[in-house]
Design a protein around this nucleic acid. Structure first.
Lengths: 149, 149
DNA sequence: CGATATAGTCAAGGCGCTTGTCGATCGACA
DNA sequence: TGTCGATCGACAAGCGCCTTGACTATATCG
């Protein structure tokens, strides 16, 4: 790597490694076969009561049908349940089950551990620098290019 | 964002923003409809003469058939040509055309510009810190989890 | 109240991958 | 040199994760 574009490759690699290792870890602790979209959905559902497929679709940046399919799948796997919406007879709510919540907890714990490990590698001060620099980079992104999650 | 897992989201967002903006830029300069796999393929082809579909497949981490399909597509779009392999009658070489090389140049220029811009946002010293921290993070990844590109 | 919008569901299609197979060529070994 | 197993590209079919289209029931607004 000649140096030019190295940051791009590092970002891509870091992201990919992050995702792959997280999913390997989740399989190890009883949650096999999950993928990034599941993770983003869990995050959203863990912060929103009474979410609907359409809410989730907007958050994930996909169509409502794709979101519904994802929810179907998570339902089948036991991570979510659907129920009657309290205020809209057309809609159905999507809620995490205990299994879904356990999964979210595992992700949170995983990330706490990874950050500790990274801080030990480069020092807490440098990790703060990384965080701030990434924040600046993302904030500088052209409008409309921010992923919704 | 409560702070826990923030780095994960920042990495994911930075990566996604990077890829999206690069592809928007490439469309602007005459290369519409490209996707990340194309970029990785271009990078490989620009560093390897006489590459074959199987070489590319290994590099991209996909099957030889998927790589061949990608090459078909790039051939159709005018980014690569195929030829006789100098040493193996079974194989065919894949080479970048002038259009392909132009695209690679645009990517390199794009990244030079983005890095300059990022350095201006956070300071060159902090950007160095980011680079070193990402290198450390990636080097610390569990074996077998390094993406091939 | 009527017209328009919206939620979920069902259906079909597209794209980018996968696995399987085949004939031609290669490489190793006796 | 001949044989056998491996490998290359190409062809074929299938799968997963999205998309668009359509429909009925419900909601919203003037």
């Amino acid at each position: 790597m000649s140096g030019r574009g190295e940051l791009a490759v590092l970002l891509a690699t870091a992201y990919r490694v992050t995702v792959d290792d997280l999913h390997r870890h989740l399989a190890d602790v009883g949650h096999p076969g999950l993928r990034p979209a599941h993770g983003f959905a869990f995050w959203y559902l863990s912060h929103h009561d009474d979410a609907t497929s359409v809410d989730l679709a907007a958050h994930l940046g996909v169509t409502k049908q794709a979101a519904a399919q994802l929810v179907d799948e998570l339902d089948r796997l036991g991570y979510v349940t659907r129920g009657v919406h309290p205020r809209d007879r057309r809609a159905r709510t999507v809620r995490l089950t205990a299994k879904g919540r356990h999964c979210v907890e595992q992700v949170v714990a995983y990330w706490a551990d990874r950050e500790r490990r990274w801080a030990k590698l480069v020092g807490p001060s440098d990790l703060r620098t990384v965080r701030n620099a990434l924040r600046a980079y993302v904030a500088d992104a052209p409008t409309g290019l921010k992923p919704r999650w």
